[in-house]
Amino acid sequence: EKTLKIVADSEEEAEALAKELAEKYNLEVTIERNPEEEGKYVITIKIKP
């Protein structure tokens, strides 16, 4: 299993990107607040072998 993390500037941007990735590529995608940067969100994508 591989994990890729993407940082987005807004929750709306994160949700839109996560939804597109999940639907288009059938990936497991989660969104959470970035504890290191206020106002940023981390999109985590898990790629199963």
Rank of each mutant, 00 (worst) to 15 (best):
V29D: 00
E28F: 06
I45N: 01
E38M: 09
L4T: 09
K19D: 03
E37N: 08
T30W: 09
E11I: 11
E13I: 12
K24A: 09
A8G: 02
K48H: 13
A22I: 14
E36D: 14
T3C: 15
T44F: 12
I43S: 00
A18H: 03
E11H: 08
K48I: 12
K46I: 14
L27I: 09
K40G: 06
G39V: 02
S10K: 02
E38P: 10
G39Y: 04
N26I: 04
K46M: 13
P35C: 05
E12S: 09
K19A: 11
D9W: 04
T30R: 04
A22S: 10
I47F: 13
I43L: 07
K24E: 07
V29A: 06
K2D: 15
E32D: 10
E38W: 08
P49A: 11
I45H: 01
V29M: 04
P49N: 12
N34Y: 13
I6D: 00
E15Y: 14
V7G: 10
R33A: 11
E23P: 02
E15F: 13
E28D: 07
K2V: 15
R33S: 09
L21S: 01
P35D: 08
K2Q: 15
I43K: 00
E12D: 09
K40C: 06
D9V: 05
E38Q: 09
K5L: 14
K19S: 09
E36Q: 08
K40D: 01
V42T: 07
E32W: 04
I31L: 03
K19Y: 08
E28Q: 10
I47Q: 04
A14Q: 00
I45E: 01
K24Q: 08
E37M: 10
A14V: 02
E38V: 08
E1K: 02
R33Q: 11
N34D: 13
L4E: 12
N26M: 07
K5A: 13
K40L: 05
A14C: 02
E38T: 09
E23D: 07
K46A: 06
K48W: 11
V42C: 05
E28R: 05
N26D: 09
T30Q: 04
E20A: 12
I43A: 01
E11P: 06
K2M: 14
I47E: 04
A22Q: 14
K2H: 15
I47H: 04
E15M: 13
K5M: 15
T30V: 05
E13C: 14
P49F: 12
L4P: 02
R33V: 08
E36T: 12
S10V: 01
L21H: 02
Y41T: 02
E36C: 14
A18R: 07
A18L: 13
K5G: 05
R33C: 05
G39I: 03
I31V: 09
E13R: 06
I43M: 02
V7E: 15
L21D: 00
E1T: 05
E23S: 11
E1P: 04
I47Y: 12
A8Y: 02
